[in-house]
Every structure is written in C-alpha cells, then in structure tokens.
C-alpha cells in the first residue's frame, strides 16, 4: 500500500492561528493570551477588561483551569460576560502544555466560539481572551494560539521576579505588574521592578496596575485597544 494522495496534493498551513482571516475573507477576532504565576491577578484582569470593553467590543473568554472550573465560574458569577461567551478548557494538570506544546483543545475552543458568533445574529467576535492556568515563569503561549500575550505578575510574589527574567517576563508583548496597592505591605520596590523589567525587556511595554483602584485596569485596556487598532487596520 502506498500514500493515496499524489505529490501534487498541496501542503496546507491553515490549521493554526497563523491565518488572520476567516473563511469569508474578513479579519478574525484578535486573540490575546494572559499567563503568569498562580494568583497574580489574571482572572481579575480579564474581568476588568471585559467590564471596561464589553460595551464597545464583542468579547469572549477561554479559561484554562488546572483542576476546577473556578475561573470560568468566577467570571460567570460576577456576570462579567454572559455564559455563551465563556468556555473552560481542561488541561490535565499541565497548564503550559495546553497553551504551548499541545494547543489543540484551546484552538478548538477558539474556533467554536468564533463559529457560533459568526453564524448568529450577534455577528463575529472582536476579541478573544485566553487565560492560562497559573503556572511558572517559563509558561508562554504558542504563536499558533494567540496573536499577542500578556504576562501578569504581582508585587507580592517578590520584587525580584523582573530581575530573574524568564520567557514570560522577558518576551511577553505586555508585562503587567499587578497589586501595586500591596507594595507598602510587602516591602516591594516598584522603581527597582521597573528598572529590572526594562533591563530584561528593552522597549517592550510594562504596566503597573492595582485592580482594587477605580479603573485600575486602564493601562492594560489602553494597550489592548492599541493592539486591536493595529489588528483591524489592513496592512499597507
């Protein structure tokens, strides 16, 4: 027996996030990943972004809980988005595998959401946020899954994390240093964190946030708006 398809069968590369277009030729939703250590404020950031942007954008969220559906349920309980806009992916005790090494379950969730909304009267999504399960400093998203990624750390996790670097801190498109309101209580040196982050990241942006403050998510929201503007503007 030999291969059924002759060599002329074209190679296809359309099964990853690489294509920015939907089957109908229009631009698909921008996909932004949020990763970072356990408890740094990923879900709180997602919730704040949704509250702040849901009037102007059609948003959906995918959570990657490690062993529960807590993140998805938190978003539901707090009525951040209606249930049809939230999908929970199960990761088998290995959150970084599901966002980097084997992205198949997350891609399916992304595409299902896109398909449901595109074919409904609501119309296509503008933005899909993918929250990783809390993981370690090396956990980054595959480019096959997301178009841009945010790495969320917090001041209480130790102000030496930006200095330690690692793929998340060093390469994420946006580094968020959250819970600045706690800095005085944990003796975190915010200026030192900013210096270390710049040393690791060069020109890549860093946002310091306190989500307990009024509109504390503003710097992240502004960055997301910038990404969306770049995404929806056709390349010259």
């Amino acid at each position: 027996m030999h291969l059924d398809h002759p060599d002329v069968y074209p190679h296809r590369h359309t099964y990853s996030a690489a294509s920015p277009l939907r089957p109908d030729g229009r631009r698909r939703a921008l996909r932004i990943g949020l990763g970072g250590p356990v408890g740094s404020g990923k879900t709180a950031t997602v919730a704040a972004l949704c509250r702040s942007l849901r009037e102007e954008l059609s948003i959906a969220v995918i959570t990657n809980d490690i062993y529960t559906r807590e993140d998805a349920e938190f978003l539901l309980r707090n009525a951040v988005l209606p249930p049809e806009r939230i999908t929970a992916v199960e990761t088998g005790a290995c959150p970084h595998t599901a966002i980097r090494d084997d992205i198949s379950a997350n891609l399916e969730a992304v595409e299902d959401l896109e398909a449901v909304f595109s074919s409904s009267s609501v119309g296509p999504l503008d933005l899909i946020l993918v929250e990783s399960g809390g993981d370690n400093l090396t956990a980054t998203f595959s480019k096959g899954l997301v178009d841009a990624q945010i790495f969320v750390i917090d001041v209480a996790g130790g102000d030496d994390i930006p200095r330690k670097g690692g793929p998340g801190v060093t390469t994420a498109d946006l580094l968020v240093v959250n819970k600045t309101d706690l800095a005085p209580y944990v003796g975190a040196d915010l200026e030192g964190m900013a210096r270390d982050a710049e040393a690791q990241r060069g020109d890549l942006p860093v946002a310091f946030t306190s989500l307990t403050a009024e509109d504390g998510v503003a710097p992240v929201r502004d960055w997301v708006r910038g990404q969306l503007a770049a995404w929806t503007t056709p390349a010259a």
Partner: peptide, 8 residues
C-alpha cells in the same frame, strides 16, 4: 508529544 490533546 504528538499534539492531539491526549495529555489532558
């Protein structure tokens, strides 16, 4: 490591 979801 074949990326077909088995790990979960």
């Amino acid at each position: 490591r074949f990326p077909a979801g088995g790990h979960a």
